[in-house]
Design a protein around this nucleic acid. Sequence first.
DNA 1: CTAATTATCTTAGCGACTAAGATATATATC
DNA 2: GATATATATCTTAGTCGCTAAGATAATTAG
Lengths: 173, 173
Amino acid sequence: MSRGKARAALLGELEEAMRRSSAQGVLYGQAVADIAGISGSDLECLDFLNLEGRVTAGRLAEVTGLTTGAITGVVDRLEKAGYVRRERDESDRRKVFITVVPEATAKIGQFYVPMQQAMQKVWSGYSEEELRLLLRFALDGYKGVLEATEALKTVIDAPAEKRASLKTPKPRR
Amino acid sequence: MSRGKARAALLGELEEAMRRSSAQGVLYGQAVADIAGISGSDLECLDFLNLEGRVTAGRLAEVTGLTTGAITGVVDRLEKAGYVRRERDESDRRKVFITVVPEATAKIGQFYVPMQQAMQKVWSGYSEEELRLLLRFALDGYKGVLEATEALKTVIDAPAEKRASLKTPKPRR
DNA sequence: CTAATTATCTTAGCGACTAAGATATATATC
DNA sequence: GATATATATCTTAGTCGCTAAGATAATTAG
């Protein structure tokens, strides 16, 4: 019995530890946004722009799940704060490309340095084989959460009557 | 060279996979809140209440980082929706204990079933020893993110001048 | 009893969001 | 080429949840 923790208890601890670090990760992101003086959505867009380089306003709406109207506000704020520029697409003048100004990338990037350093430190404690296991788990976990999100939609659509009917189910906007 | 992926590439993939699953996890939580017809903050409080059982309004403000005024609104909405009840503390009548009504626990709980099932499925693919490694990593990771959050505050306090000075640093509220 | 403290609620105002529709440009059909 | 439809973004009006400040009520200290 002393050989190995009971699996159920192990899973419980694992779940809690993951929940905690995930929540703390969200807090970190919010802290970065606060320091940068922008909203969480603004930072999310800025991060995406840094990855993709040059993206239309409409694409930002897609990936963030915001309306195009909200994105107009996001870009207005980011542009006013000097983080991004609007550039009309010359071949299709309806489109507006958003680009990050290089100095902004550096300025925001510095706020992620502490996180990168902390993660490097953590990773340094693992062998390559162990890291491969972690990667497998991270990929499995992502797939799992995706599945769960899909399954959740099923729960919604199924017994539409019994759903959130503790009181009024709040009319869908 | 074919023996084992280069460590740097491995770490890159690991980082991305973790970032993705974390982001998807946030989306899942938001989806649950949407279905339940409450805000993200409301759900956060409800989850905490389910863990702790019976908690004062002030404690909710502490753990969520919201003001007491905001908590009044949260509890108002949750109570109106029938998820919680207010109960004055008889021995100190300034305090208000919030309790979850049992049916609400069940009602919200069902939205987490898909996630629990997906995670069980994932975990079933790992040996107990592998799970122990994952737990070690989750704990290390949590510590790392906490450290990073601390270190980030240092970045803030240090060269107060150069911070977010791309334009105006936006006055602290 | 009075003053200070504690716990919650109220009020005013703000920022970010959605829904709907306006505007400008592009594409398809005749 | 003219007309209709589609696409991409912006504008407007209204909503929601938040904070800051202070009001209210109950408790504790002097």
